[in-house]
Simulated assay, not measured.
Amino acid sequence: MHDVWILGGTGRSARAIAAELLGRGIRPVLVGRDAGRLEAAGDGLPTLVAGSVAETADAIRRDRPAVVVNTIGPFTETAAPLLRACLPASHYLDLANDLAAVSATLGQDQAFATAGRTAVTGAGFGVTATESVVVKLCEGRPTASRVRVDMVPSLATEEGVLGDALAGTIVEGLPGVAGGGRYQSRRYRGGRLAPARLAADPIRLTLPDGSVVTTAGMPLGELMAAQRASGAADVLSASSEAPAAPVVRAVLPAAAALLNLGPVRSFARRRLAAVRSTARPKPREHSWGHAVVEWPDGSRREGWLRVGEAQAWTGAVPAEVVRRLLDGEGRPGAYTPAALFGSALAEACGGEYQLSEYQLS
């Protein structure tokens, strides 16, 4: 079988991935809960109805597709049963950007290596863009000492409700992640995950196009990807999507701590899922991945990766990874995208690097 299944087939990410796969001559199967919505989203593509993650897992075991693309969040809830279902026959790929889910999937490295299959996590904008810059900066270099990565997406917003999948990803926090409390941030210190304040270490970045954004620390999947790519003992991940106002940053840790209370967490998840957004164009022409890498000898390199609209790139990256897996270019085990295919993967998806190098003063 050479089928490629896209789970959550009616969603925005799934539609973008399907379009990119078709452009590569690959005709995917859209998998979801609602037959009517699948038919409308698929526009002639084959579909498969599965009413739950458990039913989807059963179908994967039964039909053994070549590649399973998981777009169903929260990935902390969906990835584990789907990863198990993929073995021993199917490759697995997801769009996770939360530290817990990325960490858990990378923890399946031995199981996938033993089965001769590949699992790829973080195949969306955030992890892939920032990790790719770190890989590019570190090529041919010794182990780094310090890294900061910043993701700066430019995202067009569709009208509609946020939905439970994304709300769950935001609210469920960091279950099972070492190094701190469930609703604390994380960074690497001394080579280990350590607690940090949410939205800490803000900086104002002047992008290569001249626009200015503020980024602040967030415990995202790119934190682990950057550490693994560089070997650095001190790593921080940050995002322009983090709260920028000083007052909000000040109260955020206390507000987040309330989510440790089950009833508060459930209420917050329901309310957030019901939030309705209006359609808005992307705020900037480009999205950017950014990294600064320092080495023990005092050398320092800075790099940017310029891509287009973040959601469109989140269609291109999974599609290119799927194509390469189908062509036998993967390796057994569990990886983030640039760890598997190097910095050239981003360029194959339309990204452009801008690099600089200088000594620390």
Results as ranks from 00 to 15, higher is better:
1 M>C: 08
6 I>V: 10
8 G>V: 11
12 R>F: 13
25 G>M: 12
26 I>F: 14
29 V>S: 01
30 L>Q: 01
35 A>K: 03
39 E>N: 09
45 L>F: 07
51 G>D: 05
60 I>D: 00
70 N>M: 00
71 T>P: 03
79 A>T: 10
80 A>C: 14
82 L>G: 07
89 A>P: 08
95 L>R: 10
101 A>F: 08
103 S>F: 02
108 Q>L: 09
108 Q>M: 10
111 A>T: 15
120 V>R: 01
130 T>Q: 06
132 S>C: 05
134 V>A: 04
135 V>R: 09
141 R>S: 02
142 P>N: 01
147 V>N: 03
154 S>Y: 04
162 L>R: 08
162 L>D: 03
164 D>E: 11
170 I>C: 02
176 G>D: 11
183 Y>P: 04
185 S>R: 06
193 L>E: 08
194 A>Y: 07
197 R>A: 12
199 A>L: 02
200 A>Q: 03
209 D>W: 12
216 A>D: 05
219 P>S: 08
221 G>Y: 01
227 Q>N: 06
240 S>D: 03
248 V>R: 09
255 A>R: 04
260 N>A: 15
261 L>K: 09
273 A>K: 09
288 W>S: 00
289 G>T: 01
290 H>S: 13
290 H>R: 13
291 A>G: 06
296 P>H: 11
300 R>Y: 14
305 L>Y: 03
319 A>W: 00
321 V>P: 04
328 G>E: 06
331 R>W: 06
335 Y>K: 02
339 A>V: 14
340 L>N: 05
343 S>W: 14
350 G>I: 14
361 S>W: 10
